[in-house]
């Protein structure tokens, strides 16, 4: 297998959903690359299209209800051109997925061992004994203390953190090159969350996999990711290394998000509130900057007519030119990007 550094290239991908007979874009013109040995975080509020992007890569959309265009180049294959049977060769084998809710992602009637070995039955030619050994090995790898016992249990007998570990074990069973983790720790306690993120990082380092980490928690991103893409209303509005995004955020949306977090230095003040709401699919503005309605004090001429991504440093890209003169109304003139 050839190992080029960037093995997943998403080029100009649009996914549109059919609502009342008309198609509306949930994500539009997404360009992203994922490299081996990196964790790419995708952040944004709910309704920004993060999960749609994940399910588009996994090919989980019903073709009669969605229209997808563009190209997803995964190690030389365009995933979007594959039929269902072709896709099944990738899902679970080369692409693993970790879901948010570990209880509903596991089959309640099957023992943990059977659920993990199921993937290997589909994608490998291992014997029963080899599979059994691999299951124990996987459970150990994700940090389960007594793999033999856990392998024999049912999902309801495990705690939330343990279940999420089992989901990770299933996702990595066939050593995928790409792991998509959709809010893997949202349902978990902070201490368990920290452990799960450690497991993800360890697995990524050992398998040289690329991980797409989808989350709304900026703290998780800052602690885990190597690169970050910020999504708003179906578009990527800023992309860069984790240092670039957190130390020198440029796009008004990124800056607003960071400012609305409760932090050590604003514990007695009111938090910053982003005006308005994320637009729904039907009401998505088709021209102009989609974030403009939420920063109404910025003059229209400071936005681009058709906002595109601008590279401001190597690896750091921002959509629209309004970032240049943007400042919050209560800090006018004090901080400028």
């Amino acid at each position: 297998m050839e190992t080029t550094s960037d093995f997943l290239n998403i080029k100009d991908v649009n996914t549109a959903f059919k609502i009342n007979g008309k198609y509306y874009d949930a994500i539009s013109h997404i360009n992203l690359t994922v490299h081996h040995d990196e964790i790419l975080a995708i952040v944004g509020e709910s309704g920004c299209g993060k999960s749609t992007l994940a399910t588009t890569i996994m090919g989980l959309h019903d073709p009669s209800e969605t229209k997808i265009s563009g190209e997803i180049d995964f190690e030389g294959t365009d995933l979007l051109k594959l039929d269902e049977a072709g896709y099944n060769k990738f899902r679970g084998a080369k692409i693993g997925m970790i879901f948010q809710d570990p209880l509903s992602a596991l089959n309640p009637l099957k023992r943990i061992e059977d659920q993990i070995s199921e993937v290997m039955t589909y994608h490998t030619k291992l014997t029963a004994e080899q599979k059994h050994n691999r299951v124990l090995e996987l459970l150990k790898e994700v940090g389960i203390v007594d793999p033999k016992r856990t392998a024999h249990q049912f999902p309801h007998q495990l705690s939330g953190g343990m279940r999420q570990r089992v989901i990770i074990a299933i996702a990595i069973a066939c050593k995928p090159d790409l792991i998509i983790a959709d809010e893997p720790t949202t349902a978990l306690d902070v201490t368990i969350q920290a452990q799960i993120l450690d497991v993800l990082r360890k697995i990524q380092a050992e398998n040289h996999a690329g991980i797409i980490l989808i989350t709304h928690d900026l703290g998780v991103v800052a602690e885990t990711a190597d690169r970050v893409a910020v999504m708003y209303a179906g578009q990527i509005v800023e992309e860069g290394s984790v240092e670039q995004i957190f130390n020198t955020p440029k796009h008004p949306y990124t800056r607003s998000l960071l400012r609305s977090m409760p932090q050590r230095d604003n514990q007695n003040d009111d938090l910053y509130v982003i005006q308005g709401n994320v637009p729904s699919l039907q009401k998505m503005p088709q021209i102009g900057d989609r974030f403009a309605p939420r920063i109404p004090w910025v003059k229209p001429e400071e936005h681009e007519k058709n906002p595109t991504m601008h590279e401001i440093e190597p690896g750091h890209e921002v959509r629209c030119t309004c970032y240049k003169s943007f400042s919050f109304p209560d800090q006018v003139g004090s901080v400028k990007a």
């Binding site: 703290g219 800052a222 240092e243």
Partner: peptide, 21 residues
């Protein structure tokens, strides 16, 4: 333990933060 597990947004200290945790 709870305090150490809160993810911090300060990316520059993330190694120390993790070591501490």
């Amino acid at each position: 333990r709870l305090l150490a597990a809160i993810p911090e947004t300060n990316v520059n200290d993330r190694k120390e933060h993790r070591a501490n945790r």
